[in-house]
Every structure is written in C-alpha cells, then in structure tokens.
Amino acid sequence: MKLTVKIKRYNPEKDTAPHWQSYEVPAEPLDSALALLLHIKWHIDGTLTFRKSCAHGICGSDAMQINGENKLACSILVQDIVKGDGDTITFAPLPGSPVIKDLVIDQTRFFEKYRAVMPWLINNTPPPEKERIQSPEDFDLIEDATKCIMCGACTHSCPSTWADPDYLGPAAMLKAYRYTLDTRDEGSDERLGVVDSKEGLWKCYTIFNCVQACPKEIDITRWLSALKRKSVTARL
C-alpha cells in the first residue's frame, strides 16, 4: 500500500519555525514506523533526521510522537496505526523538550533529572563474599521498574512536566523507585530527600499518561504511588 507520511520538520540552520512536510511512501502492514522513516531518509530525502539504533525497542533511541501519541517508532507497526491504502501517518518530535533538528530533541534536561535522583545502589555495608541475598518476591518488587529503557516517552507525555519543566517527571522518579525499593539499597533517606520535594513526587497527579506512553508497558504510576507511600511512612 501507499501511505502519506507527514513529518514535522525543523532545520536550525534554515528554519525559524517548524513546518510540516509530506512524503508518499510504499509500505507493508508488517513494516515498523521506523521503516517508513528509513525509507524516506535512504531513498527520498537524506536530510530527514532522527535517532535510531537497535530497531527492536530496547535501546530507546527513537521515541517520538506518532499520530499524536508517544511511541517507539521501531516498536509500532503500520498495521497498528493505519486502516489502509492512502492513509496518513504523522511524525513529530517528543513534546516538552527543545527540538534540535526534525525529530531529534535535546535530552540534556531529561538526563539532568535522572542524575538528580542518585540513580545508583547506595550501600555502605561491606558486601559479603558472595552475592547479597534477595528473595524472588523482593526482586519482583523492582523488576517491572528495571525494564525502563530511558527513552523519555513517559516524561514527555506528562502534563505536569509540560506545565512545569522543572518537575522531575516519571522516568527519573521511576529510577528513584527502582533503587529505593531495592532491598539491597540503604540510600532511601538521601534519595527521598530529592523526590520528596516541591519539584518531585507531589506533582504527580496520577494522570496515567506515562503508563499509556511506556513502550515497555511499565506500570509507572503504580510504582510512583508506592514511592509516595514510602515517603509518607518515612516521615511518620
């Protein structure tokens, strides 16, 4: 089939504002959305710019807005987006961060928030000779959160982040959850000091956009709520 692919283009060296550009692209139902972009870049317009790498949803490079929803371009197929021949697919950069070029956004702030939550295991007890013991049940607590690929689809779908760009956002706080609830971690005081703040947890109004956007189907809001409970009990 033939599809119309509409892309929000922006070249910082030429444009003052983003504009839409359309391409006619041949496609198969089982093609990924990324395949459409690659077709354009390779065969029609080499100036089209986007990030990509693994092409099967594990590296997190190609999160973008496809038909208005934040998706990984490699992990959504043409048949899931359009009904048939002649339909239109739109691509735009993730909303809420500055655009560098076309579909490439500046993630500086996104990773600044990641660094702010102390995203590493804090444990000052000398480790045992062997591994630290962790029951499968305790592992289950954090397993879902460890699936995060830091693609940014959640944070860039979060109305709280759109309204207040300083808000830590779901990705960073999910990372805080992943370490704080890890039974091997002893740093919850320090980490809660960051997330239990005016730009932290309490700006999550359980809107659930992040859960809908997450390409790894992580139940983000659930884990952030657990982190809120942990913060409150830590205070009591």
Partner: peptide
C-alpha cells in the same frame, strides 16, 4: 566479576534461596 556486578546493583533474577 558477576559478584562485583551484583554488588554494584545489577538486578539479577533470583532463585528460591535468593541467590542469582
């Protein structure tokens, strides 16, 4: 090396005894 990775925080799946 695996034990060091575990101490760094790698979330390995666990068996019933809580080991890797």
């Amino acid at each position: 090396t695996i034990i060091e990775l575990e101490h760094y925080g790698v979330p390995f799946s666990r068996n019933k005894q809580g080991k890797i």
